[in-house]
């Protein structure tokens, strides 16, 4: 069941394909994003996330397939699509030699604001993204997190219907990442459809109503974050064994249930739901004498786990 399906699709694609020379980047991508929802396109480096975003934002033409954004065709109705969207690309798109305020005022003017209203809109956005103090400094002096925030603010000089954010938090420190997440939440509450890409399941989990996993140019899974995580072990228990003999014995006991093994480090990984009771039971099962397990750690599934599960599971 898609949430808010009755409100219509903000983004719809069918059989989107793209190749650069002999390299096939997308081969038949089908996506549907409900209006007003937050959608995450999850995939490793080189999966084709940026290419997908660029096609949807009318910057690149697909070789085949169809896509509509805000009800408009990305090929035939470029201008209408462009007026309905905002794009914050993977790399900051700002003038380093202009100040933060100048950059925002310029974008606002290009979006049709008068001089006065561009000024007030810029001030409002600088305040919203905690950049007021840095407003009159050149962007060249900004930190990575500040640039990223300004970059997102630049996408909001007019209220878009659909906002594209390509890896908005890659390379950010945890605090800036948190600020970014809050900004996405604010947008979503204001009714903006947010289409973001990420390499982190955790981020998709935090932000998105629905997630599509892109790999090898195809969507290999789609669903709510909960549904997606159910396809992989909810959590992983890593056991570091006391010695080679203990390692072999435990590996034999857990055969078939192991998620991974690292003989050099004497580490075994096994699925768990993460509850104290289950972890305790597993430890007792592997090591009834309480001498063989040196250390243990519980991990959330990573994107790698999701991929392993989806592609080889």
């Amino acid at each position: 069941m898609y949430p808010a399906a009755q409100a219509g699709w903000a983004i719809e694609t069918q059989g989107l394909s793209k190749a650069y020379g002999s390299v096939t980047v997308l081969s038949g991508v089908d996506l549907r994003v409900a209006s007003g929802s937050v959608f995450a396109l999850l995939g490793p480096n080189g999966a084709g996330k940026t290419t997908t975003v660029r096609i949807l934002a009318t910057l690149t033409l697909p070789d085949a397939g169809r896509a509509t954004v805000a009800g408009r065709d990305v090929r035939r109705e470029r201008s209408q699509v462009r007026r309905a969207i905002s794009l914050t690309g993977q790399y900051a798109a700002l003038d380093e030699a202009q100040t933060g305020a100048e950059n925002l005022r310029m974008m606002a003017r290009l979006r049709g604001h008068s001089r006065a209203s561009a000024r007030s809109r810029a001030a409002e956005l600088l305040d919203r993204f905690s950049l007021t103090e840095a407003a009159d400094r050149r962007v060249g002096t900004y930190s990575g997190g500040m640039r990223r925030r300004l970059d997102i603010a630049a996408g909001l000089v007019t209220d878009p219907q659909v906002m594209f954010l390509d890896e908005p938090t890659t390379g950010l420190d945890p605090r800036s990442r948190r600020t970014m997440w809050e900004a996405v939440g604010t947008l979503a509450r204001a009714g903006v459809t947010v289409f973001l890409t990420t390499q982190y399941l955790e981020e998709a989990d935090q932000l998105a109503d629905r997630v599509a996993v892109l790999d090898g140019g195809r969507v290999i899974a789609e669903g709510t974050p909960q549904e997606l995580k159910k396809t992989v072990a909810a959590q992983r228990l890593d056991l570091t064994m006391a010695g080679p003999d203990a390692y072999e014995a435990a590996a034999a006991r857990l055969a078939g249930r192991l998620l991974h093994r690292t003989p050099e480090g004497l580490v075994l990984g096994v699925a768990t739901d993460g509850s104290a009771a289950h972890v305790r039971a597993l430890l007792d099962e592997v090591d009834p004498q309480r001498t063989d397990v040196a250390r243990f750690a519980v991990h959330s599934p990573t994107l790698d786990d999701v991929f392993l599960e989806l592609t080889h599971g």
Binding site: T58, L59, L87, G89, Q90, A93, D95, M107, L110, A154
Partner: peptide, 13 residues
């Protein structure tokens, strides 16, 4: 060679 041209284009400039 800088991302800004993409931003301008996405803004229909």
């Amino acid at each position: 060679t800088n991302g800004i041209i993409d931003r301008f284009r996405a803004m229909d400039t």
